[in-house]
Every structure is written in structure tokens, then in C-alpha cells.
Amino acid sequence: MGRRYLSLLVTALVTAVIAFMAHTAGAQSDNDPETDDSQTDIASDARMSPADRLLRTREFLVERAQTRPRLQPPPIGRPPLRNDRAMVDWDDVSATMAETRRRDAAGANAASAASVPRLEGLRALAPTQLQRVRPSEVDAVQMPVLVPGSDEILASVQVFGQADAYSAIADAGNNLAFRISGARKRLVLEDPPAPRVAMERMRSARPPLPGLGARYVITRSDSSTDLSFSRFGCGYVLSLMCDDPDGDARCAEDDFIVSLASSMVLLNENAGSGQ
């Protein structure tokens, strides 16, 4: 009988120890930041009292907070290696426009309705042909000033030019604000952070823009849907601002912004002639 009690006691203790270890391991995995944002955590959090949640948040803030010393402060973060001014490949600009002209001509000569000229590509347009564009704004820019060739955008577009950068804003249709920006200078990052490297991979994985041949990425946030691409040595970003970014297909899906980026007009065709 005594031996039996002893074995029972040992079994009970071993069970309790195993249960405790399992519980502790579970608590540790709850604290793992990798799993912080999972739906599972939200579900398990539903059982926590508001006071416990607040306590968890407070502890998180206290544990992670850091301060800056008043004397001899260490550097903050990492600056870029340098800021380069790119060489603009104006020959490529000319070649791309020539290719679009060739395709337009082929389309115009085709008898079949199925072969109407494609809209994709790059065509020149003088700023004087645009009602709200001041030619001096375009003349100031020493990089290709690209604007989507959509009729709605061209009807309302305004350009703000600087030597190595420009932006253009317009209405792109019903309840839709549009902006395109370009930059000739680029920051060279030292060991770019992993998400930036991942973006580079995303860009490589997509097929190029029809007509322009540029690889691109699309990102979406509260404030805009953005399409970023580079061409002729410069960086460009198109932004669409919808009232309902999740419900309006022009912002929520890729097709519309890709179609805008695939059909561009060049407002400063002669900017490269002196360079």
C-alpha cells in the first residue's frame, strides 16, 4: 500500500511538472514578436480582461522604450552612403518613342479592327498643347517629364518642375486624384533593410509595363495606391487617391494604374539635346 501511494505521488508530481513546463513554453511563444499580429493571438486575446490587455501593453512599452543620453550621444540609425545624380539615357528615350511610332504606324495601316493602334508606349507632346501646364515649369526640368496619356489626366494636369525632379497632379476621373513624381537623384543605401530587398525581388518577379518595358511594384496604403518604376535612369511614382481605396477597383486592383503607367507622354522631348 505504501509503495502504491509513493508511486502515485511520484506520478502526480511528474504530471504537474510536465503541465507547468508546457504552460511556460506556451507563455513564451505568446511573447514571440513573430506571432504578435496573428489572428490566433487576437482570438486568444479575446479572453483577456481589458485591465490585463492594458497591463500587457504597458509592460511592452516599458520593456522596449529607449532614451537618448544628453552627453556624447551615439549616432542614430544609418545615413545613406551617398546621393547620386543619374545619367539620363536620352538615346533610350528616343528609341522608345521610335518604337511606339513604328507600332502606331503598323496599327494605322492594318485593315483589321482587331489591330487598332495600341495605346501603350511613349509619345511626345508639347506642353503648349496642355491647357493648365506652364511651359516654363517643364523647361526647368533636366530629366524626362512623363505624364500618363489619358485624356482625363491631360485635360487637368499641372506640372511643377525643378532641375532634377518634377511632379504633376491631375484629376484622373470621377472622385479620383492623381499625381506622378519623378526624380533624377537617388540615394545609395548601405545594406538596405530586408523589406527593401524584398521589394526589389517583387519588382523583378513582375512582367514589365507594356509599352515602356519597365519593371514596377505596386503598393497600397490608407492614403494612396502607388506604382513605382524606373526608366531612362530615373525613378518615377504614380499615385492614385481614391475616396474608398478598398472598394474602388481603380485603387484596389492593379489594372487601372498599370494602364496609366503603360501609356505615357513626354513633355520635354528636346531636354536631352544639349546633354
Binding site: R186, L187, L189, M199, E200, S221, S228, S230, V237
Partner: peptide
């Protein structure tokens, strides 16, 4: 104030620039 920043950057020398938030 919701504050955003876009940069044109290259992730390595010789790479194509990416102009993003």
C-alpha cells in the same frame, strides 16, 4: 498629422532606382 516620405533610392550600386514610400 499623418506624415509620409517618398525616396528614390537604389538598394545596391548599379541597380535600378525605386521611388517609393
Amino acid at each position: 498629422l499623418h506624415f509620409e516620405m517618398y525616396e528614390n533610392y537604389v538598394a545596391s550600386d548599379g541597380a535600378d532606382p525605386l521611388f517609393t514610400k
